[in-house]
Computed example of a mutant assay.
Amino acid sequence: MADPIRVMVVDDSAVVRQVVTELLSRAPGIEVVGAAADPLFALDRMNKAWPDVITLDVEMPRMDGITFLKKIMAERPTPVVVCSTLTGKGSETAMQALAAGAVSIITKPTLGLKSFLHDAADDLVAAVRGAARANLRALGRSGALSAARPLAAAAEPAAGAMAETTDRLIAIGTSTGGTQALEAVLGRLPRTTPGIVVVQHMPEKFTALFAQRLDQLCAVEVLEAADGQRVLPGRVLIAPGGRHMAVRRSGAHYIVDVRDGPPVNRHKPSVDVLFRSVARAAGRNALGVIMTGMGDDGARGLKEMRDAGARTVAQDEASCVVFGMPKEAIRLDAAERILPLERIPEALVGGGRP
């Protein structure tokens, strides 16, 4: 029998510490080795028995969660699941947490916390199990890649050229570890890149800030998608948290439909919803890319894209933080090519061709 996943719970709320400890302790294969009200108490406990995964609040006394996260990742990298209230300023703080190396985020509300944690027990357990499998070395490489210069474009577009054609389309799906991977990929794309649509599994109210951050870092324009928005060369549309995004053809153009609906593969937005719509709307004019993430969302949709004639790419295991979604896509023979993260930008610029 495999050793249990050892978890340290760090949160200044006694209710959160109690409920999270109870929920995780009930899950097979998980052992809570300690709970602490702030990072300094946690460090004392962790130095005696270092955990496999840390669940971490952001706003705490004596040392905030971001500072603690950076300290851990610099000195002894350990998978961290941030449990944060994503409202107002807190959303920006959570974005900083992902940039600093957090594997995933569980959104917790300001009211009804205890009942919410019970309702979200499955998500919390899944996040901890996914974090325990995270490849932190790949996470570090993603950060280094994001600082690389954009790939050279063949030529800059003439004035107004970006609105002339959307014949080619790129669809990207990712989850755990995807925030860093997307920064690494999109940060290297020139403004001549075909229009891109992205599903990154994220909580509601979080994707707008994520898009803003990427927009500041990238040569391409990055936006949170709005219903009816056009897909244009040099533009990246990211599905809003809590909404599905699909693509449809409108004459010579591609348009995104952003809508509510039940979760698909336990996710909203779902990569499968996006990929299946791209298979129907764009067929062989599309390129599909599935990257790091836990579970199998997007694998079947990527297979539909390949069957429709699209080029398809899966990120390789060595460069994934979690090799779940790409692994399932490869198993289904949905991926035409399997590439390390550092080679995905050139595949996007080249249309996916070898």
Rank of each mutant, 00 (worst) to 15 (best):
P4I: 02
V7F: 10
V9W: 09
V10Y: 00
A14I: 06
R17A: 08
Q18D: 09
V19D: 01
T21H: 12
E22D: 15
L23Y: 02
S25Y: 10
R26Y: 13
A27M: 09
P28A: 11
P28H: 08
G29E: 01
E31V: 14
G34W: 11
A37L: 06
M46A: 06
N47C: 07
I54Y: 05
V58S: 11
E59H: 09
E59K: 15
M63R: 06
D64A: 10
D64R: 01
T78S: 05
V82N: 03
L86R: 12
S91A: 15
E92W: 03
E92I: 04
T93N: 13
Q96P: 03
L98M: 14
A102I: 08
V103S: 04
I105S: 14
I106S: 14
T107D: 15
T110H: 01
T110I: 07
F116G: 04
L117Y: 05
D123E: 10
A127F: 01
G130Y: 03
L139H: 11
A144P: 01
S146G: 08
A148Q: 14
P150L: 02
A154W: 01
A154Y: 00
E164Q: 13
E164Y: 06
T165D: 13
T166E: 11
R168P: 08
I170V: 15
A171I: 14
G173H: 15
G173A: 08
T174F: 13
T176K: 00
T176S: 12
A181M: 11
A181V: 15
A181D: 11
A184P: 09
L186G: 11
G187L: 03
G187A: 00
P194Q: 07
P194K: 03
G195S: 02
I196P: 00
V197C: 09
Q200E: 11
Q200C: 10
P203I: 08
P203N: 14
E204L: 13
K205N: 07
F210I: 05
L214A: 03
Q216M: 09
V220A: 00
V220L: 00
D227N: 14
D227G: 00
V231P: 02
P233Q: 07
G234F: 11
P240V: 03
V247E: 02
R248L: 04
H253T: 10
I255G: 02
D257E: 10
P263F: 06
V264H: 09
S270N: 02
S270K: 02
V271P: 03
V273R: 10
V273A: 07
F275H: 13
S277K: 04
V278W: 00
A281E: 05
A282K: 08
I290W: 01
R300N: 08
G301M: 05
E304A: 14
A308L: 11
G309S: 14
G309A: 12
G309H: 14
A310H: 12
A314E: 02
D316G: 05
V321K: 09
V321P: 09
V322C: 15
G324L: 04
G324P: 07
A329L: 09
A334C: 10
A335T: 02
L339R: 03
L339K: 02
L339W: 08
L339S: 04
L341H: 14
E342R: 10
G351I: 01
G352F: 03
R353P: 01
